[in-house]
Amino acid sequence: MKTVITSTDKSLLNIQELKRYGGLFRYLSLRDVSVRYKQTKMGFAWSIIRPVINIFIFGILRYLVDRSSGFVESFVEVSAGIVFWQLLSTTITDVSNSLSTNSNILTKVYFPKLILPLSSLLVCLVDFLIAFIIFLILFFSFKGLPPWQIIFLPLVVGYGVVLCFGIGLLSATASVKFRDVKFILPFFIQILFYASPIFLSSEFILSMNIPSWIKVLYQLNPFVFIINAFKFCFYGTFENYDVTYAIVSTVITLFVLIFSVKYFLNFEKSFTDYI
């Protein structure tokens, strides 16, 4: 096996190499999972408590703002958004932090750096799975069995994770050089939260008396499509479904993913000069 290192090395994604480091990927993923709630009294119960608290807060808020449906009805709908949003937002944050939290490894050993953001995904999914079970129980007890559209669920979840991975990767790469990103990101996520149909349905937002350009902007947000798609899996109806916006959302997602991976790989080899 011959290895060549040159200053003009332009090679990008090396799948073969990524495979060789599969073991590292596995152990880093497992490390993140087993460390997440170490030295907390309640351990993985936190994966349940955090979304439950959020569901209560925003369930009540929703009922106060939008009385078009009953309390239980809006409560269940909000919990769908919250549980899924928790996955999306932690994915963005964890992927974004994956490089700086592992900078000690980064500067001491060689490995394909893409492993770090990838390995931070597992813990987000584990958290989601736990919270999701709570949501399922809630849904079954108030709404009964979900419709056949539930089969799209893995697709929707995967789609959301891909978009958030892209955003997180973009922010992770940029934050190697510009630590400012670390401070901007929480605001960005907060804005996304309110600009997505999580506690207020998109129907409610679009029926509000606001300038139409804001409504267009709102619908261009790929998260509107993604979260409505998640609800579609449980309710069988797609709120404000519009092919144009579905396409726009998909294009944005693909663009973010491709661009972020390319940006990351281009910049990967000089990480150690900055971090």
Partner: peptide, 30 residues
């Protein structure tokens, strides 16, 4: 391979391991 050179070329044969620090990646909670 941790740092990219500004110029030049390196070629080597076989599997390389580097030990620049003792306990890289050790996690206190594990």
């Amino acid at each position: 391979g941790i740092v990219k050179p500004t110029s030049g070329r390196i070629e080597y044969e076989g599997k390389m391991a580097s030990l620049l620090e003792v306990g890289t990646g050790f996690h206190g909670d594990l």
